[in-house]
Design a protein around this nucleic acid. Structure first.
Lengths: 323, 323
DNA sequence: ATCAACTGCTTATACGTATAAGCAGCCCTC
DNA sequence: GAGGGCTGCTTATACGTATAAGCAGTTGAT
């Protein structure tokens, strides 16, 4: 309370208390190898900084050095599960190790020029963002604002920016291959009606290949509606495990047996997949090691070295009892 | 590509192109009411800024004005579902409307002094953070760094900072009341073994009152292990809907009927609650309006006006078929 | 006609930091 | 014992912005 009105301590305050110049404080606190400072002076500075509760001003530093050390990760519209959460955590960990500060920017609906302006204000070193949020003009703005690495995430490579390709088609393809290997021939694919999910669903469907497309909202009523479409179907790929669950509960109510009448493959290997009865066969995504590769990639771009974007994940099928 | 080496345009660049002084540019772009600028000059400035792709430097602005307009929301260790996501989005929306920039800070495991220092570097106007990440010293550091509103989130009010109380006990209490009203007397409460979840679970258990506490990891094997404990139980409150699902699938395998043998109440009203068979009775949280109240509260603290933290949610029971 | 008040700008400055450049004092070397 | 080079600092400066203060030119009141 006694410090309410006092302004935050600066490096000059630290210098004054330590009896040295502000420059010396800066040299000490940044641990510059080429600065020759006595161990004694160093200790004085560190103790003064500690005593004052000094914290450097990121804005001032960014102003002077021309880069903020920030990496921006504007959140996608897609509600993300354990997988994406894990990836973000890994990414943060790797970036911190390299001295960057990762920030996930809140406004999900933000896109286009207005969003780009907001991002550019922070003068980040890099930004990783869903390509649907980018336009040619906004990429230009970001580049002009000094953002070294503008990296997209998208199911398909973008022409605007280097893109981390989240290839959805191989997920569908793997599901299709498995269903066919089980002798299923009358196939269908569930595609979500929900906005953020639909495009992903269509890509998974594309990879699946031939089969009846069934649009489904995440809602029991919607599932009830599409039930007749499954009359003549013996294998379904369900976009993801949650939609598979929705389908399975509806099928159970209708007395349709899984997998005897209809085999079902989900995707994403969510925790609930093992809890369903029958347990759900699903396409799992493996992202271990991805964050490190992405960070290496970012570092290259920031250095100006050309580099190839890494793959985001590998896929494999986990066979359980629903097929 | 032609602008790769050029440094980002500054307000002085805009001024030069528009043929006015840098000060005029600043007055125009900040739309200051007390600044007297001709419509003609204003147009010249805006067009020059547009042409150059000018974006102001947030760091420099924060340096000059002494505040960054940032609101920090370091993510909690608790994996959050649709509810928390919705709250964060609402919060962002409200804060944007007031001219603040909300940032969700990545490092989940970050806490204590190191984290506080990282937060303080950005000189945010406010920070909302799980109180387990705070210490007396770190709160002091943040205050000293000029953070006007240091606000905690926690199941219990904190002595360190004004706290948004996420009261878990009323959830447990509501579940207990419902089970008793159904004539259930031999009650048990599921408490998660997982780190971030356990404390929340214990609070829900506390609100539940008398009953057997069963510690459960989110894993079918763990559920199998605790099954014998349910021999003499006729009503279970399951921490949340996901744990309820785990329990239900294990009970079904064991031939124990829900709700005939055991009634089950979940919490959080996750989408999957309606997809379980029987459909899951659950304690729902209502957070509509909370974000707006929180922002009002923050604004008060930033102004220096004393204010009382708002409630985070209200609860109500949704009765379905599992009880 | 005089001067105060207003208009529409410009000039000057400070915010906190990183770092280039400078500068005493000392140690070597020959 | 002169001077070159090193050590351990200090001094000075620029980054981009917001805003207080100043200042010509015009208007209005008396």
């Amino acid at each position: 309370m006694e410090t309410m009105t006092a302004r935050p301590p600066t490096s000059s305050d630290v210098a004054r208390l330590a009896g040295v110049s502000q420059a010396t404080v800066s040299y000490v606190l940044n641990n510059r190898a080429d600065s020759r400072v006595t161990e004694e002076t160093r200790a004085k500075v560190l103790s003064a900084a500690e005593k004052l509760g000094y914290v450097r001003h990121a804005g001032a530093r960014s102003l002077k050095t021309g880069n903020s050390g920030l990496v921006l990760l504007p959140l996608s519209d897609v509600p993300f599960g354990p997988l994406a959460t894990r990836f973000i955590e890994d990414l943060d960990h790797e970036l911190t190790a390299l001295g960057y500060t990762m920030i996930t920017y809140g406004a999900r609906q933000a896109r286009g020029m207005a969003a780009a302006r907001a991002w550019a204000e922070l003068r980040p070193a890099a930004i990783i963002v869903d390509t649907v949020k980018l336009t040619s003009a906004s990429v230009g703005l970001l580049r002009k604002a000094g953002v070294k690495a503008v990296v997209g995430i998208s199911p398909k490579p973008s022409t605007l920016v280097p893109t981390l390709v989240a290839d959805q088609t191989e997920i569908g393809a793997l599901a299709a291959r498995h269903l066919r290997s089980q002798g299923r021939r009358k196939l269908a694919v569930i595609v979500p009606r929900e906005d953020g999910l639909r495009d992903i669903g269509l890509d998974r469907r594309e990879g699946f290949g031939a089969g009846l497309q069934i649009d489904l909202a995440f809602d029991p009523a919607s599932a009830q509606e599409v039930l007749p479409l499954l009359r003549d179907i013996d294998g379904v790929f369900a976009y993801n495990d949650e939609y598979a669950m929705l389908l399975m509960s509806t099928l159970a109510d209708a007395g349709i047996r899984v997998p005897d009448d209809i085999a079902i493959v989900g995707a994403d290997d969510l925790p609930l997949a093992r809890l369903l009865r029958p347990q759900l066969t699903t396409v799992a995504l493996d992202i271990s090691g991805t964050a490190a590769a992405v960070v290496t990639f970012l570092a290259s771009l920031i250095d100006g070295t050309p580099a190839t974007p890494p793959r985001l994940w590998t896929t494999h099928l986990i066979e359980r009892s629903s097929t």
